[in-house]
Design a binder for these strands. Structure first.
Length: 427
RNA sequence: GCGGGUGUGGUGUAGGGGUUAACACGUCUGGUUGUGGCCCAGAAGAUCGUGGGUUCAAAUCCCACCACUCGCCCCA
């Protein structure tokens, strides 16, 4: 006996019932991006390892080894299952010469990405993401545009009470100065830091702002705010973003503790939070990454975008009681009694399908009770059962049994059944 | 990598050392000769996560491992 093969840790099967959420989300995403003028792009799931090992920066090389799915090929080259989308986007932008298109270029995609981490609520090893980016544009209105794509998506889906978190993380000009100030402040309160935060202080001090350790709330309230250290360019950009959001009536919370772990972010960073979906409360996260293109060997190109995890949005929908559209049932089931009737049934089913009418064939080796075929039809929500028995065949008709109330059973000539049904079935 | 919780038919649960592991839902088949839902009857389906140990006896107690789950770390 072979051992049963089980699902890999952190990998989920999406069964039809769950899949309805996925469909609803991706349809909404497509609708919103259409209104905003974004075009779809699909980049490979596998990329050269250095693409990801590079763009993410020094402070966060931990996951490079530990959390990426990396394969070393026979020729020694190293390739990696994408752990994020932005780097691949930018690579595609460069590889395909999109910088020669009329700028900016507005793109989106939906697909899987992979991180080898411990699963928890809203965090899987394979997760799907809706990603949306604007390349080649410095205008703060572009920052606002991607934010509004996200907010419009959630609004379209029916979300309520989301919290829009906004911050500026500065740029290579002003960020280092801020970090120095922050480190100085934290050093002064070193004994009040948790062990983990002491460690972060040396490795990636900005992350201390994100600390969940008890007592940090109070301590960090007195910490320097980045807003006070931004250079003129960054300050102006941040102010423009905020005033545009004000113009649009889009509320937001300035959260100076909002830091994204990856170094490539410049200026704008934002997240949208929903309470109640676990410790991972962000439905999406994104920001501006003006230096990323150069980091991976491309021309200097500003960019701004965000990613939103489908599974997390799904959790959010469940939490808020948002129901996805029900699957549309197949309207017809064709029943038969075996032998010659089955041949006729098979022929009929394909005639219907060719005519664009959804039809299910009652499978059976030999004959099968009509009762059981009726039950199958009912189970799948069919509207009509087309019954083909010996009688019908000899008379060249089909018995039409409606499963919805108020309609009478009737007989229709086999030659006319397609037209007869087409008149009655909308789908 | 670390910590908490949980593992009993497909799903949700009951049972907490003693012979055929219970219930509900679901599935399937019947309730006369070719007609669904409701109802009724019946059936299939579980080596009680895996492996060790204690015991005359383990689903039940102990240990380990594994998986799931929640959280930490990290967060693209």
């Amino acid at each position: 006996m072979s051992k049963q093969i089980q699902r890999l840790t952190g990998m989920h099967d999406v069964l039809p019932d769950e899949r309805r959420y996925w469909d609803t989300i991706s349809r909404a995403a497509e609708e919103v991006t259409r209104r905003f003028g974004f075009q779809r792009i699909d980049t490979p799931i596998l990329e050269a390892t250095e693409l990801f090992a590079r763009g993410v920066g020094e402070g966060s090389d931990f996951f490079v080894q530990k959390e990426m799915y990396t394969i070393v090929e026979a020729d020694g080259s190293s390739i990696t299952l994408r752990p994020e989308f932005t780097a691949g986007f930018v690579r595609a932008y460069i590889s395909n010469g999109l910088h020669n298109w009329s700028q900016p270029v507005k793109l989106y995609t939906i697909g899987p990405s992979f991180r080898r981490e411990r699963p928890q609520a809203g965090r899987l090893r394979q997760h799907s993401q809706f990603n949306c980016e604007i390349m080649g544009e410095e205008d703060p209105a572009a920052d606002v545009e991607v934010m509004m794509v996200a907010m419009s998506l959630y609004r379209e889906l029916g979300f309520k009470g989301l919290v829009f978190q906004l911050n500026s993380t500065g740029c290579p000009v002003c960020k280092p100065g801020y970090i120095r100030e922050l480190v100085a402040f934290l050093d002064n309160h070193y004994d009040r830091l948790a062990d983990i935060d002491k460690e972060r202080l040396t490795k990636n001090p900005l992350r201390v702002l994100d600390s969940k350790a008890p007592g940090m709330e109070a301590l960090l309230a007195g910490a320097p705010h980045i807003a006070d250290y931004l250079c003129d360019d960054c300050r102006e950009h941040f102010a423009d973003v905020r005033s545009l959001l004000d113009v649009l009536g889009q509320s937001y919370t300035i959260n100076f503790r909002l830091v994204r772990g990856i170094d490539y972010y410049t200026k704008t960073v934002f997240e949208v939070w929903q309470e109640g979906i676990g410790a991972q409360a962000a439905l999406c996260g994104g920001g501006r990454y003006d230096g990323l293109s150069e980091d991976i060997g491309g021309p200097p190109t500003p960019g701004v975008g965000f990613g939103s995890g489908i599974e997390r949005v799904m959790l959010g929908m469940k939490e808020q009681g948002i129901e996805p559209a029900a699957a549309t049932p197949l309207p017809i089931l064709v029943a038969h009694f075996g032998g010659a009737t089955k041949t006729a049934a098979v022929r009929l089913v394909y005639r219907l399908r060719d005519a664009g009418i959804g039809a299910r064939l009652a499978f059976a080796r030999g004959s099968r009770s009509l009762k059981s075929q009726m039950r199958e039809a009912d189970h799948h929500g069919a509207r009509y059962v087309l019954i083909l028995g010996e009688d019908e065949i000899t008379r060249g008709v089909v018995a039409v049994k409606p499963l919805v109330e108020g309609e009478q059973q009737s007989q229709v000539a086999l030659d006319e059944i397609v037209g007869w049904l087409a008149e009655r079935i909308t789908s």
